[in-house]
């Protein structure tokens, strides 16, 4: 005779707990032209979550529509250089539907002569 408790389904729960990282975005987002969520919504969400200011770059391209990037990064690198880097290095890995998070580690090498 089967015990009464084994007649119903058994529920097994597994949990993976991880700290919610704030900020959820480190340096920037590259937003595809056909992305399901648009730039304005993402920008508003970022502004609510993160105190850092994000710069909005509009891109004239069939894959990438916009880039949201931390303003502080643009103090060390011009917009043109950044856009050129993303178009050359990031764009080949994305489709128009994607939204990619980008972490940029910028190292500046300076050489100079001092008297």
């Amino acid at each position: 005779m089967m015990p009464a408790s084994s007649s119903g389904p058994k529920f097994v729960l597994q949990a993976r707990i991880k700290e919610f990282a704030i900020p959820p975005i480190t340096d920037g987002l590259v937003i595809g032209r056909e992305a399901s969520i648009g730039t304005v919504a993402l920008q508003k969400a970022l502004n609510l979550l993160i105190p850092d200011h994000f710069e909005h770059l509009i891109i004239d391209d069939e894959i990438i529509a916009d880039i949201l990037i931390k303003s502080i990064l643009l103090r060390r690198m011009t917009k043109d250089r950044l856009v050129k880097f993303i178009m050359g290095q990031v764009k080949p890995f994305m489709s128009a539907q994607d939204i990619l998070q980008v972490q940029l580690d910028l190292e500046i090498l300076l050489t100079g002569e001092v008297e």
Binding site: E34, S36, I37, G38, T39, V40, A41, I58
Partner: peptide, 13 residues
């Protein structure tokens, strides 16, 4: 075409 977007993101550039 973009049912999840807010209207601000649907306004043409």
């Amino acid at each position: 075409r973009y049912p999840l977007r807010i209207f601000a993101d649907l306004v043409p550039r």
